[in-house]
Nucleic acid binder design. Structure first.
Lengths: 237, 237
DNA sequence: ACCTCCGTGCCATTTCACGGCACACCGTGC
DNA sequence: GCACGGTGTGCCGTGAAATGGCACGGAGGT
């Protein structure tokens, strides 16, 4: 089913570059124009894309993807948002909700701080398990070893032994933290939301600019995020 | 490209019924098992679905759909959420953000009230243009006539002439309202967010149980939602 | 007038999707 | 033990349909 693969590639490219036309897509994907156009027509017929604005030769994705996406983690999101709001109110900082997927954690919801200097990550972004607060919070309850530990900054944990020790501390403490390990100027604390079987299904975090996170605040936010995650763990059980 | 169509149908069905296996999907879609399985394999290869939990024979969608979905209305959503939050704070009621698409408006974001009796609509839901506050707010700036006006409740406007008069009032007033026209026990007020060319690109609403919306509140919420939509119209211009 | 880019449409070639069928597996019931 | 209904998987001949090169009409730009 090669054509399905190419059609989905076209869909992704449309979503990334919309509004966009046949020729540019073909160039970006390295495919013949005819193939791309057939894919576009088919995606249109299936209701996943539509002509953008007045012009009929440029395309953009419809809400079909949203309908598909939101049915997945919907229960989790609905349960989490009120808790996230309270957490933001108490901390005044940006709150993220992420879920593990493959070798990464994926951002599925966020509430931003109202402070002028803030972390802004796009929904759907994937962060490494070993170099993010959410990733480490999840990893601590996953019982899985990672093959590679690439460095992103000076403080990224790249030694498997050191990572194991860190995860042990996370389990004892209840929350994971991040001291500029993915981006040097971002700090965070995170705690995992566990399913009935003890497996991590998601993670909550409080993220701030590194310059704003003092040690006292780190401990305080850590307690708060652990409480919030615990609330969700229980409400899902 | 029939196979693309069927693969996308399979994807939608997986998202609606996940976690789900080959056989049940084939029955639901009326397709041969082999066809469904080929689609599943292909979708898996493309990274849109993954085995659910421990079992390798049940499937669920990945965050791919979220990544595609969220790049679409992302700028709008990011701009709208803070305004929506303020609006909820002022009204204490559920706030919806919807965009026009085809013959309907689609819910792309919501903030819920904390009151125990509340409206809860799923993200991605489609509401009729002529029988919802958001729909009428959009329709008032769309300059398009509808072919059919199906009735949902006793109060649904089914007469084209009456609808035109209503839309004229909406334009004069700045906001549209809904008096149980889609569901008898839901009331709302909504105001359109306009693009630089005056075309409606989205709509904000305040939704409450019909029992809670007095005439005074309707007018008050109407003013607030109109102000909020105006703020967004300007910030996008 | 030229040149270049756009989107669209055609069509012979050949790939590969289709779907019937058989198989392995696993509980249940008799 | 054996048949039965239910999974998910794998094979394969047939034939539909995806492919992609190419040509055409049009819109700007120089």
């Amino acid at each position: 089913m090669q054509n399905v693969i190419t059609a989905l590639r076209v869909l992704e490219e449309v979503s990334a570059r919309q509004p966009i036309g046949v020729g540019e897509l073909a160039r970006l994907l390295g495919l013949p124009k005819s193939t791309v156009q057939r894919s576009l027509r088919t995606l249109h017929e299936a209701g996943w894309i539509r002509p953008a604005g007045g012009e009929v030769t440029r395309w953009q994705v419809t809400s079909k993807a949203l309908q598909v996406a939101r049915r997945t983690e919907l229960g989790l999101r609905d349960a989490a948002v009120p808790v996230m709001e309270e957490l933001r109110q108490r901390t005044g900082e940006t709150i993220h909700l992420m879920v593990p997927e493959g070798e990464a954690v994926v951002l599925i919801e966020r509430l931003e701080t109202d402070k002028p200097l803030r972390i802004v990550l796009p929904l759907g972004i994937r962060l490494p398990l070993h170099a993010s607060a959410n990733g480490k919070a999840v990893l601590a309850h996953l019982g899985r070893a990672l093959d590679e530990l690439p460095a992103y900054t000076d403080t990224t944990i790249t030694d498997a032994r050191a990572l194991r020790a860190e995860l042990e501390a996370v389990r004892a403490r209840g929350y994971a933290d991040n001291r500029g390990e993915w981006r040097a100027d971002i700090a965070a604390v995170a705690s995992a939301i566990l399913g009935p079987d003890g497996a991590p299904i998601a993670s909550l975090s409080v993220s701030t600019p590194a310059s704003r996170m003092t040690e006292d605040q780190r401990a305080q936010y850590g307690e708060l995020v652990t409480q919030a995650a615990g609330t969700l763990t229980e409400s899902l059980g």
